Structures are given as structure tokens and as C-alpha cells.
Amino acid sequence: MVAAAGGVAGMLAWAPYGRRGIFGGFEGVSEWDVLWFGLPVMTLGGIAAGITLFALVQGKWRQALGAGVLLTALVGFGVALDVLAGPPLNCDPGPC
């Protein structure tokens, strides 16, 4: 139940980014990478965070460490691919 709650929390955290990327992208263009990369990363991150916290509360340090490593990997993946960013701005030489 904790993993399901974490997954739902991850989806709810993703929703504002998904709405903006899919329906209100730059110049009306949909940014589907927000759906294909952002939603799974946020959902799996929520699940991993829930499992980590639950394991810590129960005192299962090895399980918490494993889930924490997974959570760290997901954060690194999300930051590296910039999964919640909007579409890039095309700027000429000068201020945007």
C-alpha cells in the first residue's frame, strides 16, 4: 500500500509538468518526452521513496539502502535527461 501511495504521489507531482508539456508546449507544440520519460521517472521515484521511508520506519536498513540507491539512480536519470523540462527555447544571439 505504501508503494501504491508513493506511485500516486509521483503521478500527482508530475501532473503540472505533464499538462504544460503535452497541452501547452512552446508555440503550441506538444512535448511528448514529458509523458514518455517524466511520468515513469516520477512514478517509479514515488514508489522508491515510499519503500525507502517504509523500510526506514521498520528499521530494515539494508532494504532502505537498496531502495535509496534506486531512488538516487532515478534522480540522476531524471536530472541527466531533464525529464521535467519544457521544450528548449530557440534564441538568436542576444537575450531571450
Rank of each mutant, 00 (worst) to 15 (best):
Q58S: 12
L39N: 05
P16H: 06
E27F: 08
M42I: 03
W32G: 01
T52E: 14
F23R: 09
D82W: 07
G24L: 11
G68L: 12
L89P: 03
P87E: 15
L39Y: 01
P40V: 06
A13F: 13
A3W: 07
V83T: 04
Y17I: 07
T43S: 08
C91L: 09
A55Q: 09
A80M: 00
P93L: 09
A55E: 06
L39W: 05
E31V: 01
A3S: 01
A3E: 02
V41S: 05
G76S: 02
L84V: 08
V83L: 03
G18F: 03
P87H: 04
L39G: 04
G94M: 07
G18A: 07
W36V: 15
R19C: 00
F26H: 13
A48C: 13
L74G: 09
L12Y: 12
L44E: 10
R62W: 14
G46C: 09
M42Q: 13
K60N: 13
A55F: 02
D82Q: 12
A80H: 05
T43Y: 12
A3D: 00
F54T: 06
A3I: 05
L84S: 01
A5T: 06
L70N: 04
A3Q: 01
P88V: 14
A15N: 02
A3T: 02
L71W: 13
L39D: 00
G45D: 08
G86Q: 14
A15H: 04
P88A: 04
P88Q: 10
G38Y: 10
A64T: 13
P16G: 06
